[in-house]
Design a protein around this nucleic acid. Sequence first.
RNA 1: GGCGGUGUAGCUCAGGUGGUUAGAGCGAGCGGCUCAUAACCGCUAGGUCAGGGGUUCAAGUCCCUUCACCGCCA
Length: 645
Amino acid sequence: MGTFYLSTPIYYVNALPHIGHSYTTIVADAIARYRRLSGDKVFFLTGTDEHGQNILQTAEEKGISAQEQADDVVSHYYELWRDLGISHDDFVRTTEPRHHAGVADIVARIDAADDFYVGKHEGWYCPSCETFYTEKELGADKTCPDHGRPTEWKSEENIFFRLSKYQEPLLDWYRSSPGPVQPATRSNEVMRFVESGLRDLSVSRAGLPWGVPFPGHEGQTVYVWLDALTNYLSALGLGGAAGEAGLLEEYWLSGAGPRVHLVGKDILRFHAVYWPAFLLSAGLPLPTTVWAHGWWLRDQRKVSKSVGNIVQLEPLIDRFGSDPVRYFLLRDMVFGQDASFSDEAFVDRFNSDLANDLGNTVSRLVKLSRTAYDGKTPPEACGDNPIKSAAEEAVKGYREAMDGFAFHKALSHLWRLLSEVNQYLVAREPWKSIGAGNTDSSVSRVLWNGLEGVRIVATGLLPVMPQVAQEVLAAVGTTDVPSDLSALEWGRTPLSVPLPESPQLFPRVDKKVFFSTEPDSAAVAKQQKNVGEEEMTDEITIDKFFETQLKVGTVTAAAAIPKAKKLLKIAVDLGEDEDRQLVAGVAEHYDPEDLVGKQIVVVANLKPVKLMGVESRGMMLAGSADGRPILIHPDSAVPPGTPVK
RNA sequence: GGCGGUGUAGCUCAGGUGGUUAGAGCGAGCGGCUCAUAACCGCUAGGUCAGGGGUUCAAGUCCCUUCACCGCCA
């Protein structure tokens, strides 16, 4: 029994969450739930990174403030984490005052160690990625290697951090046992990188209005990583009124319990080099583990916004519930490696593991037991049998795997036990005795053993599928949710208690039907691949297109929105009971009075959003020429509400 | 280019320090059973362990090399 600190990265609010964010957070949640059940006092932290030029720019394009942009995206995270059953203890946002206080505090500590100095930072700068590049990294015509956009020569005074000073201390840390950077192959990469020599790091930007002002340096803003990484401690109260007492002392400064950062492999360097260097300088304890996991791939490519092969989990969550999605992600990825995602792999996993193995085993046991014992669990238990030894072995393997973050292994141990239960039932054939009217103690023991095996599996599933695990437990006669893992011990299925009629926990999915109504996006992408790499992400099916409802509407009113440069509030007659209110970013090019009476084309089924506090329930279509909107009109007047296709 | 990794049955992957007929799950085929969600149980899979060379009594497992893919190199 101890403390356990666990963090996900904080996610950038420039775009909506995708499978990568969900995966990291689900993994963290499973670990957090497992540690809590193991008796640890857990602090599980997630949050959002809300500063930087990109946020500002995205907000500007939408005609909203940076804070509104952040608030909007954060609301999606809140919703998704709720839908996925994430049990975080805190959610930190870098725009919060407590985070600013934390950043100020760590800056003061590093400053006290004399690890900052003012220097000149210059090079070819890409505004999109906010990064300086060296000459040889640039593409043709000095374009950004990432975005292909032109870079500009930029030279500014920045504050530098003496990263080079920490080369040896960092190497000592990596070599300490057990290795703090996991898995081992990542640790090697990081060590080679550090061995090759560390350059000092620019940790401020001049004239960046959206961020934490650099204390003591007018006009400088704390640069992204020093700002963002500090969330791990600002959430515990670093720089706060409570000083170093409370959470910060308990989970971090005392150095007592594990301090684990879960990260994607793309941001490993920041967590395994910069962050520990900052902490060394600040005189604060280092994390005990930085765990870099792999990526979900689709068509052999990383799932990302820029590639356009985003995997959205929401449709699967809507259709199957969050727990099967959690199960799939944890079962199908070898933690640490990459894995490929496909709807078909999900459905296969669902049918074979959840429907056939787990669901069906529950059904058959419950039915047999209810039939033999008048709707109750069996009256007699059994202390020594093949299922008991199989369960003990499974629990041992499960615990070892969970302790080592090997979720796929932990789950396969549980499924091995389910398989033993099924084999056992076939060997004993209790239905024959029951059919013959025999429900003596041997039948009771057989059924009780089966139920007990399933109960143990369900208990082990609590961290992975919290909701489903409880349903399974209830289905096999255990209505009290176990509060700790002692429930993995043999022998707790109660005797002769009412057993509810077996619910269909995981109705089998007919793949033919499923894929005829819901086309496998991986298969679609594959077809498109034949057309050519470049076009792959540009083409959509006609079905996809018709998901967008376009209608012609007549503008009935238009007015400027106070304090908004680009926005107009517009009322449109779409042939509905009342006019639709839209907010459109056309104020710089259209006067409100010119719009009234005009017919426009509107996306009618767009999710409503609030812009500058005004609700917008749709979007009007416009061509975009050099950023200037040109409204689209029908060729001749049509009734309001006329569909466009 | 430098450093590191991967390539094993249709698919996803296991295979410490070299040693009997190379394994698991899924899928497929055949058989059984009928309590159960067309489920469950059993059997079957003839895989040049990417290619080539070498060390050894013996190599998927060590060495060299070729090929393909991937990661890190601010």
